[in-house]
Design a protein around this nucleic acid. Sequence first.
DNA 1: TGCAAAATTCCGCGATCACAAAATACTCCC
DNA 2: GGGAGTATTTTGTGATCGCGGAATTTTGCA
Lengths: 228, 228
Amino acid sequence: MTQPPLIGLGPIQTQPLHEVVYERLRHALMSGQIAPGRKLTSRKLARELGTSDMPVRSALLRLQALQALHQLDNGSMILPAMTRERFSDLMTTRLICEPTAARRAASRMTPAALLNLRQVAIALKSAAQDQDIDAYLLHNHDFKFGLYAACGSPSLLFLIETLWLQVGPFLRQFSGQFDNDLRGILELDYHDEIVERLNAKDSNGVAELLERDIRDGYSFLMEHGQFE
Amino acid sequence: MTQPPLIGLGPIQTQPLHEVVYERLRHALMSGQIAPGRKLTSRKLARELGTSDMPVRSALLRLQALQALHQLDNGSMILPAMTRERFSDLMTTRLICEPTAARRAASRMTPAALLNLRQVAIALKSAAQDQDIDAYLLHNHDFKFGLYAACGSPSLLFLIETLWLQVGPFLRQFSGQFDNDLRGILELDYHDEIVERLNAKDSNGVAELLERDIRDGYSFLMEHGQFE
DNA sequence: TGCAAAATTCCGCGATCACAAAATACTCCC
DNA sequence: GGGAGTATTTTGTGATCGCGGAATTTTGCA
């Protein structure tokens, strides 16, 4: 039998240290805090984080398994550089997965989830007008995954996440190059239209907008982005 | 300057232990040697493999990152059971990725790769006639990935690999249930036709065959396979 | 000053230990 | 015999150590 509640305190949520390190590293990667080609050594990271190297090793291994990091011959982990070829490849694969996920999400999205997306879209626009790149990228991520999460396919969602884990680390780097000017991005921002098509339950329309979003972003960055 | 060669011996290829363990575990998974729901504890595995638990921990972490294993709340790794829902989800996602990969491979395949595929297809048929399930699954894997490898997209190939890492462990279990009778499989074997379409450089035909291959396998196993 | 050789530091890797929590085995009493 | 409570073992987790090799810095000679 369970004990009767004493003071009403819930259980203390505790997660393993390597999990915390993983999340920290993942966030650092996705927010562009790690330069391409940067070597990530477990000992240095451990000192920086104030832990032993074991949890760091675990986190690095997981990121490498997802191809977010690359392992050198000597075992060191680096954030691989983004070449035009790799970027092109990743975006092409995104085009395979994401419009499909969006199409399915459109026909399964709950009103609550749609409302949430609408709010993120508002925050997105205001971040763009404020020229706040970090906020823009963050909300863009939230918007897309808020949408894809409704697709009802855990495996497809996982694939998309691994793709973003590879592209994500470079978006901020790219964005920092056109003089912090997000007006160009605003012009090819389809989030409002996507919300509108979602509201109309127009699955194909949503999928098509997603495809344009990815294609336009691709062209824009291939033209203006600086690659290795 | 490099030393003049002494005896002409090449460098000894050595790979880290955790890499060896990873490959062993991965192979054990894909060949169906691990029962669903089975708990994989690092200490026991380490004893069985004759190593310390460190390399085993690394290997398990990597497999978990790829969702080939699932982590319980207490941190133990288990091979998750295959439910009808999960199987359905994985096969649906396969349908998104694999026909596309096949279509691209069709237009990029070299004659040498095609020749190799032809030989695998022959081995495949003979394995089916010999009722050799293990050989059949092995050659089926080689055939599909021999095909996909030609698609020219590392990222797409990686996604497909993660999908197979989740479905693979259960195929043998399924196959062992219809009385070792592979005739049913032979009837919906499209490998010869795929080779033929590849030879004719009929990309759409190849993609369509792949889709039928996946769909038929899906229906067959949903009908005859035993799930959790 | 330039540059190669030597000394030192850094780092991946694997083993081992300690600790707490969980799982399992065991005991003992009804 | 059965079940509750206890003892023992197992296991995840993280820290630390040692080894060998790689990378870096220092040194010393021309």
